Simulated scan of single mutants.
Amino acid sequence: NIGGDLWNIRPLLERIGYRILSTYTGDASIHDIAKAPRAKLNVLMCHRSINYATQMFWEKYALPWLKVNYIGVAETARSLREMAEFFDDQTLTENTEKVIAAEMERITPALERYQERLDGKRIMLFVGGSRSHHFQHLSEELGMNVVMAGYEFAHRDDYEGRQVLADMKETAISRVVPDLHYERESGCEPPADLEQKKDELGGHLLDYEGMIAHMKKGALIVDDLNHFETEAIIRELQPDVFCSGIKDKYVVEKMGVPSRQLHSYDYSGPYTGFDGALIFAKDIDMAVSTPTIKYMKPPWRKKESGSDA
């Protein structure tokens, strides 16, 4: 629940009619977590941080998981629709469409204004978890050009999708962090129509396609950048905004490039759901539009000009 992400999503789910039994967030309680095996569907937002738990629930309790993305207008709508499709419930389906229509009517005028202002801006994304993938959707919805994306602590399946897991070889780290598997609990059976649902849900049920599948031709894919590499890439790609975390923020801003945090949201956010898309658009617009950052002189320019100012 980074920066209150769930707080934007919970009201949407409750308006549709879902009963949320348990959440694996920073503000969850042990009592909530204990109720998790009773759920009918496990929704997975961050593939890197919590996919081990969802896989455990699947192996032990036959609890299916659905890869969702609540960052971006279209992706939020897609995730809500696929949840309703999983349950194949007419009321949930109708309520989902009503909620999406109401939210779109409410946010579209403001969103279009930001799209006009941000169209063509160059954005770089270097975040953990699945966020560099998630935020590509929202950035592109706003008309921005994602020129670089990557992760600090991702695994191959975060980039290439879960289909690579079967071919990955064990390494020395496997002795320290073993690949755990679990026995199926007695009486726990998956839905009878699971295979049909997997075909219907666009490859998001018990699967994840990875970030590379979404990357545009010519965009740069990176992994675990250090600050030297970050500076070199910024000089080469000349982005309008760099989105990362606190370790990179001030290094980047000293280069005269605005930076927004996608972990703590710089005391703004959250960026999830329909409201979150507007907050993100407003924050990025402020970042790229303010002239303040242009007055920052990086150390090498001070040396070139012979000025200490």
Rank of each mutant, 00 (worst) to 15 (best):
Q136F: 01
Y70E: 02
V127D: 03
G120Q: 11
S79G: 09
D88G: 07
K67P: 00
H181S: 15
L165K: 08
V99F: 05
T96G: 08
L201T: 06
R184I: 04
L118P: 07
P191D: 12
E200A: 15
P178F: 05
L165G: 01
R113Q: 15
L63S: 04
T171E: 05
H134S: 12
M168G: 00
H181M: 00
I100M: 10
A77V: 06
H155D: 13
E160S: 08
L66R: 04
G187M: 09
F153H: 12
F153Q: 10
E185Q: 13
M104F: 00
A101C: 09
T171K: 04
E105P: 01
N145T: 14
C188Y: 07
P190M: 07
H181D: 12
L165P: 00
E170P: 02
K98W: 00
H134M: 10
M148Q: 10
A192P: 00
E105Y: 02
H155Y: 11
L194M: 14
G161S: 02
R106T: 13
Q136K: 13
T76R: 03
T93Y: 05
K198T: 04
K67D: 12
E141P: 03
S130E: 09
I71C: 02
Y114W: 12
D158Q: 11
D158I: 09
R81L: 11
Y159D: 03
P64N: 09
F153W: 08
Q136W: 00
K169G: 00
E85I: 08
G72L: 07
I173G: 00
V73Q: 02
A62K: 06
V73E: 03
D158V: 08
M148H: 04
Q90G: 05
L118G: 03
L180Q: 13
L142I: 09
T76W: 02
C188N: 10
L142W: 02
S130L: 03
A77R: 04
M124L: 12
Y114K: 07
E85D: 14
V177W: 03
A110W: 00
P64H: 04
E85C: 06
L80D: 05
P109I: 09
N95G: 12
R175N: 11
R81H: 07
T76F: 05
M148Y: 02
R156E: 13
A154D: 03
E112H: 11
M124V: 14
D193H: 10
I100Q: 08
V177F: 02
T96M: 09
L125V: 07
M83I: 12
A110S: 15
A154K: 01
D199T: 10
H155I: 03
A74W: 01
F87Y: 13
D88V: 06
A110R: 15
G128I: 05
V146Q: 02
P109K: 11
L201N: 10
S139F: 03
E140Q: 14
E189H: 13
A166I: 11
P191E: 06
G129T: 08
R122D: 06
M83F: 07
R81V: 10
A102I: 02
E189R: 13
A74T: 10
Q90E: 15
A172W: 12
A102V: 03
I107M: 14
S139M: 13
H134K: 07
T171F: 00
I107Y: 11
E170F: 06
